[in-house]
Design a protein around this nucleic acid. Structure first.
Lengths: 158, 158
DNA sequence: GGCGTTATTGCAACACATCGCAACAACCTG
DNA sequence: CAGGTTGTTGCGATGTGTTGCAATAACGCC
């Protein structure tokens, strides 16, 4: 819908400064990963990121990538949740915190704003004192189209 | 609350009949897995089931177990969802459909009844036509105790 | 610019889960 | 009970993440 993901805020210089503040280092690998992330909009799975990094530099190793992703999440540059299949899904630069709806039929996913989530889950917070991690929330189910299509869980006989 | 999980309804004979109805077979492996499940209450991760099966019969292979688990889920004997870490969690004999709350701090998890879930998510259903898979729902966050304990995501310096 | 400290990398191994495929064995039939 | 069908098993390989550890290389300091 909107831009191409080359978002302001994924600025290498800023990240470098933030890292240094924490006594952490700015490395070529991190620069590459940040770069890949900058040219990414919306959701990506962990393996997609690995793939894209290796496309630019075949030397890149998965462990480095996943560790860097952790760091970036720590710094608030991204969020991750787990899709309907349990795989990691990263969401770059979440301007506003939000959750996801994912269809087990077609795999499509949609965002639900923090407002909406708060509306839905706020009372869990109040009644149980349970602080929902909105950014991590992915709700599985079937979208309208897939519900109309077939009733069962993605399985279509014959 | 109730018993030890040796629930009525996980009856080998009944399962055998159900399998045969579908042209499927009753094998020693399936019997073992059902047995393990019978002595299990509440949540188990996939690897826990594997472990317990191998404890009784070291020959058991993971692929067989996971495949049988799929079959059993198909037949409604259990449900699975993905915990905060993305790992599979199975729930045996869900008398009533329900979702889960899982604390990323202590790992503890709680059930939330279908009623409560419906209450929370019903409007997603109405406004978007999205049919939430309640049995698959696991909401991550921090429980009251852990929220009081420390503010960040499970990380504790020093 | 050279040097020391120590965060980070890359490797290898592991953990969890899934899949293709050939051999096996439940089950049905006669 | 022997024989054929075909659903299942078990193996090995693959995909996705994680972790321990020794070598490397950022970064701060002189």
């Amino acid at each position: 819908m909107s831009g191409d993901g080359s978002a302001i805020g994924l600025d290498p210089t800023a990240l470098r400064a933030q890292l240094r503040d924490r006594g952490m280092r700015w490395t070529p690998q991190r620069r590459l990963i940040l770069d890949v992330l900058r040219s990414t909009s919306g959701h990506v799975t962990g393996s997609e990121i690995v793939e894209r990094c290796r496309a630019r530099d075949p030397e890149t190793t998965p462990s480095t990538i996943y560790r860097t992703l952790d760091v970036l999440e720590d710094l608030g540059y991204l969020h991750h949740s787990h899709g309907a299949g349990g795989r990691e899904e990263f969401h770059v630069l979440p301007a506003v915190e939000h959750g996801h709806l994912q269809c087990v039929g077609c795999g499509e996913s949609w965002e639900i704003g923090a407002d909406e989530v708060a509306d839905l889950l706020g009372h869990l917070q109040r009644s149980r004192g349970f602080a929902v991690d909105v950014g991590h929330l992915t709700i599985a189910g079937r979208c309208a189209a897939c519900s109309a299509d077939g009733a069962d869980t993605g399985f279509r006989p014959g």
